[in-house]
């Protein structure tokens, strides 16, 4: 072997990495929560009769989706103070990552809503169901299974993008691994462990997403 893996060092840094993993999960969870709600707002605001609003929101979603998240994180973090708002790394990180993924989720919702056949809307009109009830009781339950795969993928996606928060000093996994690296000049163990931890978290999450997707489909009677 041309490299030496040091187990004592591994055991020494593992607790730090594990507690940083908690932060990573927290960041992913909080960001995802923001994205789920904000994404719905973005999706529904494209379904109003106001064409200008639709156009503006569409362009905004495209903009967010085609520019790098890491740049958006810098933007939020540095532009805040410039206009007189001081945001902590955590706050700016959550805003940036939540906004970024809300654009993706709005596309998922949009696709899901569009996947419901026109006939379902017509049947709701024929029963005089109100718009709110039409969405809530008929359209959303059918759109949801179509959204689920996409929503699950982006949950895993947001998890894997949290390392970018390290660039503004959010103390998640990557940040901690960098810190260990610069203290000890050993990169092999921290970076490899980070990779393994990500695999251990993201693969089961992806599996869980798939299982719950099937469960939801069965539950709603949509096969």
């Amino acid at each position: 072997m041309m490299f030496d893996w040091r187990w004592d060092f591994t055991w020494e840094i593992l607790p730090r990495l594990i507690s940083a993993t908690a932060n990573t999960l927290l960041a992913a969870g909080a960001g995802y929560g923001i994205a789920i709600v904000l994404g719905l707002v973005l999706a529904l605001s494209q379904r109003t009769p106001y064409r200008l609003l639709t156009l503006v929101v569409r362009e905004f979603v495209e903009f967010i989706r085609s520019t790098p998240l890491v740049l958006q994180i810098f933007f939020v973090f540095f532009v805040g103070p410039q206009i007189g708002i001081r945001l902590s790394p955590w706050t700016s990180g959550m805003i940036a990552i939540g906004l970024h993924y809300s654009a993706y989720l709005s596309e998922v919702y949009r696709g899901g809503l569009n996947s419901v056949p026109v006939g379902q809307w017509e049947a709701c009109s024929a029963l005089s169901l109100s718009t709110r009830k039409t969405y809530w009781r008929i359209i959303i339950p059918q759109a949801l299974p179509a959204c689920f795969a996409g929503m699950g993928n982006y949950l895993v996606g947001i998890l894997k993008d949290t390392p970018m928060l390290s660039v503004i000093g959010v103390a998640e996994l990557m940040h901690t691994a960098n810190a260990i690296g610069s203290e000890s000049y050993r990169f092999l163990e921290p970076y490899t462990l980070v990779g393994i931890i990500f695999l251990l978290v993201s693969l089961p999450t992806a599996g869980l997403v798939r299982i719950s997707e099937m469960w939801v489909r069965r539950k709603l009677g949509v096969y």
């Binding site: 056949p117 006939g119 379902q120 017509e122 049947a123 009109s125 024929a126 005089s128 008929i138 339950p141 059918q142 709603l220 009677g221 949509v222």
Partner: peptide
């Protein structure tokens, strides 16, 4: 439209 009922070519039953 409440006093009107309608049946469709493709049924449009709610699948869930």
């Amino acid at each position: 439209r409440e006093p009107i009922g309608m049946c469709f070519q493709h049924f449009n039953l709610f699948p869930h």
